[in-house]
Design a protein around this nucleic acid. Structure first.
Lengths: 148, 148
DNA sequence: TACATATATTTGTCTATACAAATGTTGTAT
DNA sequence: ATACAACATTTGTATAGACAAATATATGTA
């Protein structure tokens, strides 16, 4: 990924700015590849993330706050994301009887089945994205990213 | 930036997935810091990018295609972005007489003045974002990111 | 010239994100 | 018991992004 080529610029970008733009560009690419991998399943990355979080609850329902905490992108409207998953019959929502301010959100069997199919595609996409890296390089990259 | 803490998970994430999530999380953070820096000027990152591209034209007007090429995030609707900059009187648009399909977009003096103010704030924000890195680390990071 | 094709931009629709305000529920202090 | 603050979610509004369709102009070819 050559940034200068992507941005069609001929002048050299100073290293501070270059690093920042570089991370953002790579992130865009990752998002794009993952979105494409999800396309056949007609589900967005964020919807997929919510489904995975709910499965990780192992039957225990989650409320909105819990989902939000675990999301890669903290959203202000997980409500609307959950709405879409309910429309697809991947998720159920009911009022939490112990605390009626909260809601209990859980994945349906249908949602679990769909997720299993998606998992395979996703694992392939993820593997392909990092195939050019050695294990050592991945470790170095993660250490460097930790400094942000 | 500790990913596991951010995602509130206790289990270790496999390195492939961890790297991908890591890049995306750092990218979110960079975007957030930059957005906040721009907030006092009431301009979005993308609007700022378009302004910078237009200034880089050195008086030569740009058409939509040119702007798109040079954008960090290639958009399908630079049209609407330009609309907003016109409303702020930072940018002018007129039909290109040489080829009436194209439009000539140029930055106004008002836009240039505003951009000069923003530049200072942005340079500070960028510098701060990478302050924990040595020059060598930044170079290594850029080299690793190139492999994506 | 007429027609098909390519090019450049605009518009519509849907999803996602950020932020603020509104709603409803619970806990607490008096 | 009432009033008030804190909490959890929902809703409204604006920006941005992906994609497809529509519009307008230009170009190549029979």
């Amino acid at each position: 990924m050559n940034i200068e080529k992507i941005l069609k610029t001929d002048k050299e970008i100073p290293i501070d700015k270059r690093t920042i733009v570089h991370v953002i560009l790579v992130s865009h690419k990752l998002n794009e590849v993952i979105s494409q991998a999800l396309k056949p399943y007609d589900i967005s990355i964020q919807q997929f993330n919510v489904l995975r979080i709910l499965r990780g609850q192992n039957g225990k329902p989650a409320n909105l706050g819990t989902i939000n905490e675990r999301m890669v992108t903290k959203m202000s409207n997980t409500t609307r994301l959950v709405d879409k998953l309910i429309a697809k019959n991947y998720v159920e929502r009911k009022i939490c009887e112990a605390n009626r301010r909260k809601i209990d959100i859980s994945i349906t069997n249908n949602g679990k089945k769909e997720l299993e199919k998606i998992d395979i595609t996703m694992a392939e996409a993820e593997k392909k994205l990092v195939e050019k890296f050695s294990k050592k390089e991945l470790e170095t990259l993660n250490q460097l990213l930790d400094k942000f």
